[in-house]
Nucleic acid binder design. Structure first.
Length: 116
DNA sequence: ATTCTGACTTGGG
DNA sequence: CCCCAAGCCAGAA
């Protein structure tokens, strides 16, 4: 350890890594909210960080980032447009439905971790 | 080293 | 339903 006695513990891994790991587990046809992911990643209350972690992903990634939506069941608007439409299309292709107001009925599609 | 900025959630009025 | 404030991390300039 580079540890000087009394020095603050330095993060060995970034939070982004654990967040990506959780998102990678969301099964096809299911969605999770940012806050839900944060909790599962051991970072309760850091929903925002989840969004930032996803925004940092490269264009081509094996991580199913499109399965993460906000707690209201809607696709969160980004500063940079482009992926919103693609995200909805990807979800619909997996069988995730949107209601007339453009929201996903979370009661039906929310991912239950540890449950298929 | 400091400053800025982004895919959020929750509670209260 | 709307609006506001607080909590939070990391990478780029």
């Amino acid at each position: 350890m580079t540890g000087r006695p009394g020095a603050p513990t330095r993060r060995a891994t970034t939070h982004r890594a654990s967040i990506h790991a959780i998102v990678a587990q969301i099964p096809r046809g299911r969605v999770a909210s940012y806050g839900q992911i944060a909790g599962l990643a051991g970072l309760p209350g850091q929903a925002r960080q989840v969004g930032y972690a996803l925004a940092a992903l490269p264009e081509a990634t094996p991580i199913p980032w499109h399965r993460v939506v906000n707690v209201r069941g809607e696709i969160s608007p980004r500063a940079r447009t482009g992926s919103e439409g693609a995200q909805r299309r990807l979800l619909e292709r997996e069988g995730v439905a949107f209601d007339a107001t453009g929201r996903i009925p979370m009661d039906r599609f929310r991912w239950r971790a540890g449950l298929l």
